[in-house]
Amino acid sequence: METWRLLSFQRLSGAENMAVDEAIFRETATRGGEPTLRLYGWIRPTVTVGYSQDLEEDVNRAFCEERGIDIVRRPTGGKAVYHSTDLTYSLASSQHRFPFSADILGTYRVIGRCLIKGLGKAGISAELVEEGRAPGRCFEEAGCFAVPFRNELLVKGAKICGSAQVRGRDCFLQHGSVLIDFDPVISLQIMGKDGRDEEEAVRRLAGAVTCVSRETSVPVTAERLVPYLGSGFEELLNIRLLKGDLTGRERALAERLITEKYGNRRWNERGRL
């Protein structure tokens, strides 16, 4: 049976989380090795913005500052995501390792099915969006969860998990968040819209997005969801997850990326170093 590395659950800052994800991705690209699954949380509320997203346009920085919400730019594209209690996953692998390939959507599908299997174990019946609607020009679209897209996960038509992917030579990193709780008002405020004055927008967003706490009768934290999601991967792909740690090279690279990139105002504000 094939084995993958599973990194233990940790809550880290936004800069640390993005740096660790990228370090694993870079090392997978240069040194190969087994796929790595990481399931993690956030030590502080954090907004992650997409690689080429316009921060000034799409995020209310003053609001975030006032509320102590960190902002960090991801290595992946897509829209802004507000992380608080959610469980985030990242998977880095060679595209030549079973069951992956160069097919971008095929990779989303495989990982999506594993997450569905895992959520099912927690009593949540999710499905994969095969054909999502194209992003419209509604103002909520700056937020990732406002825009269901192909191969993302819905529960009864409402999005529960959004994902994004970056590809290098022969390898990829995909990460995404399973919402544990969701507050449409704060989400709209982060996107620069005052939710209190936009009742219709709050109503729409509340209908378009769901979360684990809404879909289960017992309280579920990010930590408690970890074994469910892990076994979803194991059972669907017939693999075994073995707990492991970052290598010395990954740790050193992550530290450098925190200093030079994800902890760097220039990167987070403009997407340039």
């Binding site: 971008i104 994004a164 970056v166």
Partner: peptide
């Protein structure tokens, strides 16, 4: 050769140009 010369972002992924 074999290393990035840029990055392309699409609706599906961000991909390094090799």
């Amino acid at each position: 050769q074999g290393e990035p010369f840029g990055l392309i972002e699409s609706s599906k992924a961000t991909v390094e140009l090799i």
